[in-house]
Nucleic acid binder design. Structure first.
Length: 468
RNA sequence: GGCGACAUAGCCAAGUGGUAAGGCAGAGGACUGCAAAUCCUUCAUCCCCGGUUCGAAUCCGGGUGUCGCCUCCA
């Protein structure tokens, strides 16, 4: 079995063949830390979090690098607006970012480099580009000479003349061609700057990723990923830079996540529909948000609305319900064997196989979720018909869900905590009332518990409770 | 203007040549003292028109529609 990845560079699915297996070097373009991240950003980070976890699940040793862009026009403008320095702004939103992704259960990257901490590597890279004739100096700025790189436009599948036709020409440009882009920008008054061979200034946006990925991964990356809107010009430019400096491809596989819309509209400031993660995790269970994002293929556009979160929640709880039931019954399960066990055992084996097939095929999480639901049904049938239960089998089921949840992280698979003694006593009293067929008293207690957030379920094997 | 993506039930969504996964919502039934949970049944011929094929949601051509990129943007 091999993992297939849709490579934006070739517009086709390719087998994953890392440069030095089982190692996989993985670079994800991180946030520009000038504001809180929104749900669109979160989609990208959740998707690649799952990709990374799945590669781990399949036995790869993944090294994930994700940068912070902490110096660029947006950073400078925002810092000025707020009357603080760029480093202050960066510190504030890096902290906010880490809180947000933690809330979303996104695992931190192995390395989280900041552009401003890699100025020497950036300068060194620009120097190599100048030496190789892929860059030129113009009035204190340094630009990449796109005419020197014949493959420019390959990633975005645009020809240079077509790009030129659509390019906007700003007045007062120091560039030779509208397609050229800044590697180094001369200092303007009031901007952060660093010394360089070309005078004081700061790096352009694209150069940091080329410099830092090379610094931390040395050679051609296995996977480089980001949002679809980074294809042009950001990733195109990164490729050009690395080629110009080292005559090697930056990455083997380019992955891009699709857009997220808000109630069928593009998320934008002007529409006022930007939804920050900060705001959403207040109102929704982060696991519901993850579930929603994983319910569509990562390259497809995804719509976001409160209604869709509610749908996701309802579906997710079906799985959650089954998990809780199984965990609850584990203690009382024995070692019976029979047709029921056989059926569930087969369903489990099937699920194991199918989930790998789904995920190996370009990380088809939507298909994978279907597998989890199918197994949940089989398991529910077993819980209904298989009493007395087989402990080992139930443990295997839980083990399977734990393994997959270690990739998806959409479920809470933990043994439920103890109840207050008072509440436990109420449940006992209700059971006594039911035994005495005092339905009025039993219902009164149940209502009382409901208002306290405890929901009861009467099963053939006793009363079960759960928190709502 | 150039490039590209997508179009599957009320909603979400998988499926790239062999006769439509899964979830949400709905309807009917079983179980239950009543519920809850669960199970069973039920709910689509895949935007339109042509073509290729024994056979197409899946391939090709032509429409229509939606969206994206070409400019900061995840």
């Amino acid at each position: 079995m091999v993992i297939k990845i849709y490579n934006t560079l070739t517009r086709s699915k390719e087998e994953l063949k890392p440069g030095a297996p089982p190692k996989v070097t993985f670079y994800v373009c991180g946030p520009t830390v000038y504001d809180y991240i929104h749900i669109g950003n979160a989609r990208v980070f959740i998707i690649f979090d799952v990709v990374r976890r799945y590669l781990n699940y399949r036995g790869f040793d993944v090294k994930l690098v994700q940068n912070y862009t902490d110096i660029d026009d947006k950073m400078i403008n925002r810092a000025n607006d707020q009357g603080i320095t760029v480093p202050e702004l960066a510190a504030r939103f890096i902290e906010a970012y880490e809180e947000d992704v933690t809330a979303l259960r996104i695992r931190p990257a192995d390395v989280k480099p900041r552009a401003t901490e890699h100025i020497p590597q950036i300068i060194e890279l620009i120097e190599r580009l100048l030496e190789n004739g892929f860059a030129y100096i113009s009035e204190g700025d340094v630009y990449y000479d796109t005419s020197r790189y014949t493959d420019y436009g390959r990633l975005s599948q645009q020809k240079q003349d077509e790009l030129l036709a659509g390019a906007r020409v700003e007045p007062g440009e120091k560039k030779r061609s509208p397609l050229d882009f800044a590697l180094w920008k001369q200092k303007k008054e009031g901007e952060p700057s660093w010394e360089s061979p070309w005078g004081e200034g700061r790096p352009g946006w694209h150069i940091e990723c080329s410099a830092m990925s090379t610094h931390y991964m040395n050679d051609t990356l296995d996977i480089h990923a980001g949002g679809a809107d980074l294809i042009f010009p950001h990733h195109e430019n990164e490729i050009a830079q690395t080629w110009g400096a080292d005559q090697r491809p930056l990455a083997r596989y380019w992955m891009h996540a699709g857009y997220l819309n808000i109630e069928d509209q593009k998320m934008s400031k002007s529409l006022g529909n930007v939804r920050t993660v900060r705001e959403l995790v207040e109102r929704h269970d982060p696991l519901d948000l993850r579930f929603l994002i994983l319910s569509a293929h990562y390259r497809s556009p995804l719509n976001f609305s409160a209604d869709l979160v509610a749908q996701s929640r309802a579906g997710r709880q079906r799985l959650q319900e089954m998990i809780v039931n199984v965990l609850d019954l584990l203690g009382s399960a024995g070692n019976s064997a029979g047709e029921s066990e056989e059926k569930l055992r087969n369903a489990l084996g099937n699920a194991r196989k199918r989930i790998v097939e789904a995920m190996d095929d370009d990380f088809n999480t939507a298909d994978g979720l279907g597998v989890l639901f199918d197994l949940a049904r089989s398991c529910n049938i077993y819980l209904k018909e298989g009493f007395p239960y087989n402990r080992e089998l139930l443990e295997d089921v839980i083990h399977f869900y734990r393994d997959i949840n270690d990739v998806f992280e959409i479920l809470d698979i933990s043994v439920p905590g103890k109840l207050d003694e008072e509440i436990a006593a109420l449940i006992v009293r209700r059971d006594e009332a039911r035994a005495a067929k005092d339905w009025a008293a039993a219902d009164r207690i149940r209502d009382e518990l409901t208002t306290r957030g405890i929901v009861l379920e009467d099963t053939p094997h006793g009363t079960r409770w759960k928190r709502k």
